[in-house]
């Protein structure tokens, strides 16, 4: 068994790097910003916060309680979206698959807005209503998009899925506008949500994100061999003895839960799930035993650095995080799109 791990998995050093690099990026992001802190002050203050002692006086005491949860949220959302992208790209054999390109994020947003507009909430759990609806709609959109693509052509061609995803995104956004315009006095809470970003919120969101990353995220990580077989070919997977339907359903449910949670907390952050798995694949190869952990790590680092850029480049003004990821992602999307197009014609 040790030999199996060595054949396809990571060495201890590589695992350590995958954990340490995001930690370093997190430290950097807590320290840097409109007001920069020293690493020493930062750790001292965080140490006091964890032990429940009053923090030493100074700027750090005022800034860290705001910056730390933000950095944690960004880390977890980046990791989660990236993991989803990697899993979907493997399952569908489609290097362009991502929550945003396939319309899943748009569907999740629609669900969240509907829950806000019609006041669907679970008493005692303030986030649960929006989140549950976002997950449900994410799953519904995935099913709808995949069945439409399947009707169009049974091989689930790369381009037809993306085309349908884009059309579905537009459809969902217009439905969202429609719901908002009929939402009456609830419009404020909706507007607040749609403008919301990872910049606001507390530790509750962090805990929810962490839970989502451990449970459905853990399931996805365990499905690495199955995802490998799908990435090679679904028919081949069936011949190898993979329970094809069950695996597919499990992956789609996990992805929907993760995207639902991320969207309901941070809104749509486009292309993260497209960019980072792609970079990870170039470095560690397509094998999901290596690709999935690398995507988690790279996704966290990518979104942390993007967030840092968004809040420092026009200091003191802040850019929207989604704007920056879209700028990077759109360019990369075109590059991958042309590459796969050439490959298909060969």
């Amino acid at each position: 068994m040790r030999r199996v791990r060595r054949a396809e998995g990571y060495s201890t050093a590589a695992w350590l790097a995958l954990i340490l690099v995001p930690l370093a990026a997190m430290t950097l992001c807590v320290c840097l910003g409109s007001v920069s802190l020293s690493v020493h002050d930062t750790f001292e203050t965080i140490g006091c916060l964890i032990r429940g002692k009053p923090a030493p006086e100074g700027i750090a005491a005022g800034i860290i309680p705001i910056r730390l949860p933000r950095v944690l949220r960004v880390t977890l959302v980046g990791a989660a979206l990236s993991l989803c992208g990697a899993a979907m790209q493997g399952l569908l054999r489609n290097p362009l698959a991502d929550g945003s390109t396939m319309g899943v994020s748009a569907g999740a947003s629609l669900g969240a807005v509907i829950s806000l507009a019609f006041g669907i909430a679970i008493p005692g759990l303030p986030l649960a209503g929006t989140m549950g609806m976002a997950m449900l709609f994410a799953f519904g959109s995935l099913m709808l998009i995949l069945s439409l693509a399947y009707l169009l052509d049974r091989s689930l061609d790369t381009h037809s899925i993306i085309l349908i995803g884009v059309i579905f995104s537009m459809f969902a956004s217009s439905l969202m506008s429609l719901v908002i315009s009929f939402s009456g006095d609830r419009i404020h809470s909706i507007t607040f949500w749609t403008m919301g970003s990872l910049a606001s919120g507390g530790y509750t969101e962090v805990l929810v994100l962490l839970g989502a990353l451990i449970l459905p995220g853990g399931v996805l990580l365990r499905l690495a061999p199955e995802l490998n077989s799908f990435a090679v070919g679904e028919e081949n997977a069936q011949g190898l003895g993979v329970p094809v339907r069950r695996v597919k359903l499990t992956v789609l449910i996990c992805v929907s839960v993760l995207i639902g949670v991320c969207v309901s907390i941070g809104g749509t952050i486009a292309f993260v799930g497209l960019v980072t798995p792609h970079i990870a694949r170039m470095i560690v190869g397509p094998n999901h035993r290596r690709l999935l952990p690398a995507s988690l790590s790279f996704g966290a680092v990518f979104l942390l650095l993007t967030d840092l850029l968004a809040r420092t480049v026009l200091n003191p003004r802040e850019l929207n995080l989604g704007v920056v990821t879209s700028l990077v992602g759109a360019v990369l999307f075109v590059i991958i799109f042309y590459r796969t197009g050439r490959g298909a014609r060969r």
Binding site: G233, P286, T340
Partner: peptide, 25 residues
């Protein structure tokens, strides 16, 4: 064990990785 006519590939798996998948069951 099935062997299909043709296998169009999307990702750069190595030959060993493809063969190793055979042990899944």
């Amino acid at each position: 064990g099935f062997l299909a006519q043709q296998h169009t590939q999307q990702y750069a798996y190595t030959v060993a990785e493809i063969v190793r998948l055979g042990r899944y069951a």
